[in-house]
Amino acid sequence: MRDGQIRVLIAKPGLDGHDRGAKVIARALRDAGFEVIYTGIRQTPQMIAAAALQEDVDVVGLSILSGAHMTLCPKVVELLHAQGQEDVLVLLGGIIPDEDAAQLKAAGVHAVFGPGTSSSEIIAFIRTAMAGG
């Protein structure tokens, strides 16, 4: 656990333009006192991993509404681990069916948040995880 501010990367992988959720979450986390690095749309897993490394983030948050989560998420997790960032908290939001969520959690995604999740729930989850819980 570090004494400084919690740094979060919010990324939107995939080729679609559904960026509303990502922006809503980015702003909510800023307002909760986190430092949020927003990468914009159309990010490849490689771009996300490179940004996560250079920015030394504590949390990587992915927003996926396109249906491509089963290929994109495990790839991001794999790249993070390969570059020595096994300790980064990986969160996923968007349109994710329950059975996919279960599989992704087994593959190293720490939590999945669907439509209608309140920001405070997400903020509380991050705070608890960062406190070592």
């Binding site: 501010q5 949020v36 927003y38 914009g40 771009m47 940004a51």
Partner: peptide, 24 residues
């Protein structure tokens, strides 16, 4: 809030495969 939304990176894509560029 003491938080920040750091958005400069949105305009700096295109170097990610390049170890010769480091953006913070």
């Amino acid at each position: 809030s003491g938080g920040a939304l750091l958005g400069d990176r949105v305009r700096m894509t295109g170097h990610s495969g390049d170890a010769g560029v480091f953006i913070r």
